[in-house]
Every structure is written in structure tokens, then in C-alpha cells.
Nucleic acid binder design. Sequence first.
DNA 1: TTGTAAGCGTTATCAC
DNA 2: GTGATAACGCTTACAA
Lengths: 339, 339
Amino acid sequence: MAKMSDVAKLAGVSTATVSRVLRNPDAVTPRTKQKVVEAIEELKYQPNMLARHFRRTETNTILVSVPNIINTVFAEIVGGIEDEASKNGYRVLLRNTNNQVDSEYSSIEHLKQRQADGIIMLSPKMDERLLEEISEQYPMVMATANLHSSKVPTVSINNVSSSKKATDYLIQLGHKRIGHITGRLDSIISKHRYRGYCQAMEEHNLPVDQNMVREGDFTYESGYKQMKSLLSQKTVPSAIFAASDDMAMGVINAAKHHGLKVPGDLAVVGFDNVKFSSIFDPPLTTIAQPLFDMGKRSMELLIKKLNNVPLSQTEYILDDELVVRASCGAEIEEGLIKK
Amino acid sequence: MAKMSDVAKLAGVSTATVSRVLRNPDAVTPRTKQKVVEAIEELKYQPNMLARHFRRTETNTILVSVPNIINTVFAEIVGGIEDEASKNGYRVLLRNTNNQVDSEYSSIEHLKQRQADGIIMLSPKMDERLLEEISEQYPMVMATANLHSSKVPTVSINNVSSSKKATDYLIQLGHKRIGHITGRLDSIISKHRYRGYCQAMEEHNLPVDQNMVREGDFTYESGYKQMKSLLSQKTVPSAIFAASDDMAMGVINAAKHHGLKVPGDLAVVGFDNVKFSSIFDPPLTTIAQPLFDMGKRSMELLIKKLNNVPLSQTEYILDDELVVRASCGAEIEEGLIKK
DNA sequence: TTGTAAGCGTTATCAC
DNA sequence: GTGATAACGCTTACAA
């Protein structure tokens, strides 16, 4: 494999000149540049990036810590990150944590060992104070995370207001016994979505009945199971707000298997607007998180940090949207919501 | 940031010894080792991996070229790759190609620039001869690809026999007008699946009617569109074999929107067994590709190549399986297939 | 504008 | 078993 010194020799110049041609061609006369370029082509020279990264102490690589790449929510965010990254000459190193905090720590180690220029953490589970500490020393951005503190730059939607919006919608359709399947309640996202649900209920003087609330873990299976549990009670909800589309689909299938019609006997609102939510039968009414954009935006912010551009804020709240489909039996007609 | 020489100084040894403690601790007396370890902890020394990679000319990173990470098929394979990689101390660098051949070439450049120790290509579209050439010089494995040649190690299922199996199943259920939605026919995978379909038909003396065959591109949308097209004809199929689950779901929804009952009026078999296929209504009968395992296996093979372990073969065919669910209206009962 | 040469932090080859 | 030192390939003061 040809190295820079080979190119230099063939072109009759020094390695410094070859390096300049590569890095900043205008600092060199057209003539020498020409010679060097020819030599590069002749030898099919490829710079040894390991040497370059070492010397420049940068990798052009950003690390993404993902709880689970198979989850379409994260896959879409990663898609957005990758898109923006490759447009800017960065590569994306993926780290699947499988929801293990240990794995998150080891991602941080990678960062400290300078194997990546920066990190984007998706829904981190690790200690918040530690996260802040690292964020002070290394370029870091978080996506789909709501920490208590706002020291770490975070891209998300407003999980409280969006959930309130979802619940409001069900109330507006006339529902009173509205159940909620939460995500794992050790996650702040889940707490916020729960809070939005509570706020909507309380504002309309509807009691938040703990018999109507179940803790899931964002998965289809947990939605299915918790709905079964709700259906085994004497009083049964007429509507469900699920904190994820996967759970909403579990809820609907559980209801169907129980002989209920959706939306006839049960209205369901999901959360995320993953691809399948529109394909599912019935298509899900859901809160659309701009997942791809969240990924893009996180990467944009990280690039700013990498270039020492000061960020004007630390919380970037993107717009969510209630996407109305058939799972609540409502149709938009002339701008009005009809049951 | 502390460097090795700092550790050496504090421990009162040379850098060579520190390096030894890190790489091969048994080549050092317990006493010196102890001193060095203490110094490392005291200084919170982290090796500079950029320097190490440069020096060792290896990165412990493998590159995965993915047509589209948002596609659950690929996401599951990547999940398997990541799993096996992290068990073996490798990191996974992701490159989303968005089905652009150019992007595949640029992944290869990364490899040549020694930014990764090896590469796994998922469904590559680039020139086959070039692929072979690169495979001779660099560690490379392919997954979900069937090339004509068998020089590049490839992990896949047998797309011909699996498709034949799927079609046979429909024939066995009594269907005669069986349609097929292919993937893009410039892909060998699609051609093989088509071939399996044809073989099954011909073996049962059923004509392969070109009016019953449509070219899709593996996406839900294409399945939907091509089914609409099939339904606009005078003679309409009674069953469809779709070359992907996404297309199968498109087919089913198109049929439903057209007023047909699935499986009552139309039986559908898909391909891939993505997570959502069992959640869909009706749950899809489909060919299960062991996606996660395919990822794992590809990584295993790549690790062998990286360690210069000779591979006994170049084609690794994993077992597929026909998963029978409700989309064909059949139920397994006492081991018998009933209509 | 171009060349010289030092240096990035680690590892490997020698001696001792 | 340990230490001195050269080397990996590129970048960058500094000198010319």
C-alpha cells in the first residue's frame, strides 16, 4: 500500500507538500499540485486514516448509543442521524445497549478513548449527574430523553403536552373511562406521558382511576398483556391511551381477541407514529414524533458542538402532531372531529 | 489526559513495561504489574486508542453496509451482527446506503483506508466482479445476497426452495390462480424467489400466467399498488405469494380496501417473518428468515476471516421455515393442513 | 511556495 | 523480566 512518502518521491516533492495538497490545495502552486495529484493517481494512494486520525486526534466518527436497533422508533432516529452525518463527512458508529446501563457506560469509555468525536445517546438510562459531567467534557447530545436538568443538549418533543393532546382528543370524542398504558415508569418519558394523561383528565374533572392505569414497557407484548388485565375487571375502559404504538397495537389485538370491536367498542390512541401504525388494522390514531428529524437535529447540534459553536439553548423541543386515523372511530370532516 | 509515559514515570518503570502489563500481563512480575496497575488507577489512565489503532494497524471495528436501516429486515440483521460483534470486542460502524451503489463504493473506500478491519455487506447492489476482487484483498462477508459466483462468503437462505415451499403450500390448499409479487427483478434474490414460484407452479402443471405476476420493490406501497393492479383485471388471483412481508401487507390492505376478505377471498403468503407479520390482521403466513441469526453468523464468519481461519465453504445456507398463521385461512390441526 | 524535522502515543525489537 | 529506542504515517511549526 502506497504511503505519502512514496507519493512525495514520485512527484519529486516533500511529504509536507503532499499533505498540503490533500488538506489545503490552495497553499500550493498549480504546477506542484498537478504533479502530486498525478503521483497519487499513479500509485492509487489512499491516506492511512488511522495515522491521520491519530495525528489529528479526531475520527470523524460519532457514536450513537441505541437501546435497541430492532425497535423501529430508534431505527428511524438512527436513520436521521446517519443521513445528516454522512452529509457532513461523519461516520456513525452504532452501539446497541439492549437497555443495559453497563453498555451505556462502555459507550462512554469509547468516547473517552477518543474513538469517536462525539456521542448521541438515545433514551439513556444511566445516572443523570454522570451524564451531565461527561457532557461538560465531551461533545454529547441526547435524543428522546427528558432529564430533570437541562444541562445536556436534548432533542425531544414535549411529552406532557402531546400526551395531554392525545387524551383530550379521546375526551372530546365523549369518552370518560379512559385507560392509560404507561411505559416503564422508571423512565422520565413515561412519567411525562402519564402526567399529560392525568392533566387532561383532571382538567375535564374526570377521575384518574388507578384501576384504569397499567404499567407496560413500550413493547407490543406488554400492551397486549396489560389490556388483558384491564379487560378482566368489572369496569372496563371505553378508550385507551397507550404510550407507544407498539403497545397500542397490543391493546387492540387483545381487545379483538376478547371479542371487542375497535374502534366500535374501544377507542385507542398510540404514540410515535411508527411506519406500521398506518398499516395496522385499524390504522392508529397516534402522536407523531418526528423521529427522522429528531435524529437529524441531534446530529446538527452535535456538529455545532464539535465545531465549538455555542448552542443557544439546551432543550430542543420539536413539534409533535396528533395524526387522526381510524382507531378512535373518528373522521376529520371539514375540519371538524366527528364521532 | 494522562498518557502511557505518565503512568510509566509514576510507577517507576518504562513505557514498554506499561504496554506489556496492558497487552500481556503474564510477561511481567506480579510486583511490577501491581505498581503499574496502581499508577493506571491513580492517573485514571485511558489508552489512546487512536494511537493504538495506528500502531497496531487494526481498529476492532467492522463496517456494515445497510441498504436501509429503517427497514426492519435489515435492522434485525444488524441487531444480530451487533450482538455477536460486541461479544467479541468488535464495534459496528453503520453505513446506510439508501440503496445507492455510490454509497456502497464509499463504504469500500473506508475499508481500504483501514478505518475498519472488515466489512459485512447486506444485499449489495454493486458490481459482482468488483465485489469478488475486494473480497480477495479484504475481509468481507455478505448477508442476504445470492451472487452468481460463490467466491465471496455469503450467508443466506435458499430463496428458490423457500419460495417453492411457500407456493406449494398455496397449491396444497387448493389454489390454482396464484399470483406473485416480486421484488425488484434486478436483484438476484427476487429472481430466485420468482424461480421458486415458477418451479412450484410447473411441478403441479399450473401455468405461470404473466398476468398474475407483478414486479414490486419489497415495500408496502409497491405491494399495495401491484395488488390494486391485479384486482383491476377480469381474472383475479385467489392467492398471492409476495416476496416480502411488507408487500404482503400491502397486498392484503389493497384487497381489504377493495372489499375482499382475507383469507376468505384471498390467501396471502409473505416472506421474511418480520416482527410485525404476527401482529398484523390477519397474521401472516410467511417464510421465516432467521434474520438475527443471519447477522450473527455473518459476524462469526467475518471474525474467522479476520483471524485467518480458513472457511470451509463460501455459501452458508441457513434454514428457513414456513410459519403458518391465519392469512391463508388454514390452521394446523393434529399436524394436518386444513382449509 | 516549499522543505526539514519534530512529534503525536503506542508497540516491537533489541539488548541487557 | 525490563528498559532504551526506533518505528508506524501523517501533520505542522519553523526555516529557507
